[in-house]
Design a protein around this nucleic acid. Sequence first.
RNA 1: GGCCCCGUGGUGUAGUGGUCUAACACGCCUCCCUGUCAAGGAGGAGAGCGGCAGUUCAAAUCUGCUCGGGGUCGCCA
Length: 598
Amino acid sequence: MLRDTECGEPRVSDVSKTITLAGWVNRRRDHGNLIFIDLRDRTGLIQVVFNPKTNEEAHRLAENLRSEWVVQIRGEVVKRLDGAENPDLPTGDVEISASELIVLNPSKTPPFEIRDDIEVDDNTRLTYRYLDLRRPKMYANLELRHRVVKLMRDYLDERGFLEVETPILTKSTPEGARDYLVPSRVHPGQFYALPQSPQQLKQLLMVSGVDRYFQIARCFRDEDLRGDRQPEHTQLDLEMSFVEQEDILKLVEALYIWVTEKAIPGVQLQKPFPRMSYHEAIERFGSDKPDLRYGMELCTLSDLAEDSGFGVFKTVVGGGGTVRAFTAPGCGDYPRKTVDELTEIAKSSGAHGMMFIALSNEAESIDALEPDHIRSVIKSHVELDTIKAMANRAGAKPGDLILMIAGPSGVVNTALSNLRGEMARRLDLIDPNEVSYLFVLDFPLFELDPVSEKWGAMHHMFSSPRPEHVDMIETDPGAVIGQLYDLVCNGIELGSGSIRITDREIQERVFALIGYSREAVEERFGHLLRAFEYGAPPHGGAGLGIDRLLMALTGQNIREVVAFPKTQTAVDPLFEAPSRVEDEQLEELGIVVRETAK
RNA sequence: GGCCCCGUGGUGUAGUGGUCUAACACGCCUCCCUGUCAAGGAGGAGAGCGGCAGUUCAAAUCUGCUCGGGGUCGCCA
């Protein structure tokens, strides 16, 4: 071993011990005849002092040290001089009086400083990811992730779950997301697909009698990237036989409470997890993944708006749209510029615009509002009494700002939900120590594609309808509620699950509604349906994103909680992937690349 | 695929038609310095403003295209 102690370890109790450390030079402070360096490894920082009176040779060598050099240091742990302690460091009461210095490896000056409190362009960080990961914050993210996954494994192992690996090279099932394809050399012209999730495989494992399965599973989807989406992500995939929805919810809840409380000591958690229906979530928050750490719930003003006679409102509501709003407390004095910023957010969420009603805090109450107390474009079009009624319904008080969007309900909800999040950040309403889980239940099983006017599965086509809704599959598909649930954390959708269909007849009716021909079903799902003919146990489960959970727990984006992520254009700047390959490789695969551009 | 923001020494920013062969902070280099820990002091090097094409007497600044990063709508069962 090149060391016997790690940098974060020495304490006053170690004083007078001679130890050997190894690590990176975090910083050098050269006082001429006295040189300090902060030595860093993943465990922390320790100050090393080079004094020519202690060891002239070591001091002379230390003059050459620079940031990020890798060194081995032997020395005595000594108590720091009175008043020279550093309370910011756990090791700050002691220092190492160096008697020997060995340079294990010098370093070029890094492209950015290895510190937590700097902002560097993502491309630069990813190009030098190995340096970026030296930052304590990034190491802490890796460590937390490790701990979370280990806790999941431990918990599920204790309860009889079996971790089973499923293939990465599998078959394309071309609905849902785009697949990543892998060409087959042995079968030229044919392709494997990387799994979008192990969904069908885990259901087969249930038929196999595995009973309780889980996997920390990599999933691949070739869709556009976001701050919360990477081309590959990891999910906790689990499935259980002989269970009902409540059994899965209970297990997931207990598991996530255990993991969160163990991984983040002192966390504030609401137990049991709140539950609400999909319908309620949309009504109250305009989102199926609401963040419950703050209020500002939405209200619907369509009826008041339509009766007001204001042309914009009439057009929207008459055209089947809606008018909804929420109140930002204490923001009635927002200047034009700030409101314009909010309007931009509404527009980038798809809304045509945003209306507001700013209420002066000089009014005694909503009922006592005078026209002078109100700033709003609708003021000259809408009766004062109607504005008061709107303010009352929105729960506004004098001094508040009501944000209002009119349009198709989907757009209105998206925009208001985004604005609600923005206001929570602006008003600093989020307690960073709070982790807020939520089960969203009772999702509709089918949704109508407004363009094609075809019914599609909201989740996937193996999710079971409520038994009492089976008869509506053909007559009123939109009203069929599934045994389907989402787990949400701090406004982030962690994932979803369901009780699966194990009844051949119901499965065929679902396929029929979605418009799959018998041939298409056989081609895509024949293997699964055949398996179900050999005694499939009732089963259900969930797939819950690990990256998303880490995002929620750290409050950072997905690129911060993945060791080697890709940019928004799905590029890895470190490896420069994707890349062209040798002609011979293509030849072997029987692939000819058609040159379009470049 | 659409829309929005950003791109200036190694890093982060300022400069938004001429006074800019570009300013500041950190970093880097040299020298001084025995108690610093964002050490301090003195001095110094380092970019021609992502790229291309325009507009203009004059472009880091304006326009178009393009490349790269980020956000967002669509998309992501």
